[in-house]
């Protein structure tokens, strides 16, 4: 892969969430999780929460390019994880390793445009930054039986020796796919596709019925 230098490409970027006055609808908007949370039980083995309207940014570049890596660190305040299947977090920013040349960055929703713009202004050479916030959403499963729900849905080995806190895998999840990150001993973050979010919401309700599902809003 050769780096393209001295190229003044203009990239059109669009602010998907210009300001907080425009009401965004997350992929699970129709499920009205706030009402479900009020009605539902307060205790159970699994807690479900949608981290709605986060900014999701896909970054693709060559990890051997030290100049680009330093720009990333400047923009995000944290260096990209280059070890396979790892993640780093700094405040609200989480960077997930997806493949040797691809990372998924999640930031608070209103920051996505600023970060995307900062990449376009500061990076040079061969790279790609795409704001994919509209295409996916992040849900967390936590609690004593969160891992049991994931075990039903995915072939991933979740034993702490194989899947420590901070590890990220992209895998099959209930015939769909998910980027699964262990953010705590009993907490997992799933990045799921918008078009599958309703199906997975139904799936998770069904799979966690035996443990008791607590919906948080």
């Amino acid at each position: 892969m050769s780096d393209v230098k001295n190229e003044t490409a203009t990239v059109s970027v669009m602010n998907q969430l210009p300001d907080a006055s425009i009401v965004g609808q997350s992929p699970l908007f129709h499920a009205d999780l706030a009402t479900v949370a009020k009605k539902g039980p307060n205790t159970g083995g699994v807690s479900f929460k949608e981290e709605a309207l986060l900014g999701h940014i896909t970054l693709r570049m060559n990890a051997d390019n030290a100049e680009q890596m330093s720009v990333v660190e400047k923009v995000l305040g944290v260096a990209l994880p280059t070890q396979p299947l790892t993640s780093v977090s700094q405040g609200d920013v989480v960077v997930r390793w997806i493949s040797p040349d691809e990372w998924l960055i999640t930031v608070p929703g209103l920051q996505a445009f600023d970060i995307e713009t900062a990449f376009q202004q500061n990076m040079s050479g061969h790279y790609q930054v795409v704001n994919v916030s509209g295409g996916q959403t992040l849900v967390t499963l936590s609690g004593k039986h969160a891992k049991d729900v994931i075990k039903k849905s995915s072939p991933i080995d979740l034993h702490p020796s194989e899947f420590p806190v901070g590890k990220v895998v992209t895998s099959v999840f209930a015939k769909s796919s998910a980027v699964i990150r262990r953010s705590g001993e009993e907490t997992f973050e799933l990045v799921i596709r918008r078009s599958f979010s309703d199906y997975l919401w139904l799936w998770i309700q069904d799979a966690s019925r035996e443990y008791g599902l607590v919906v948080e809003a």
Binding site: P84, L85, S99, P100, P155, I156, V169, S171, V172
Partner: peptide
């Protein structure tokens, strides 16, 4: 690339 064994399903 991932450096670990995974199920054929993937």
């Amino acid at each position: 690339h991932c450096g670990e064994h995974r199920e054929e399903e993937e």
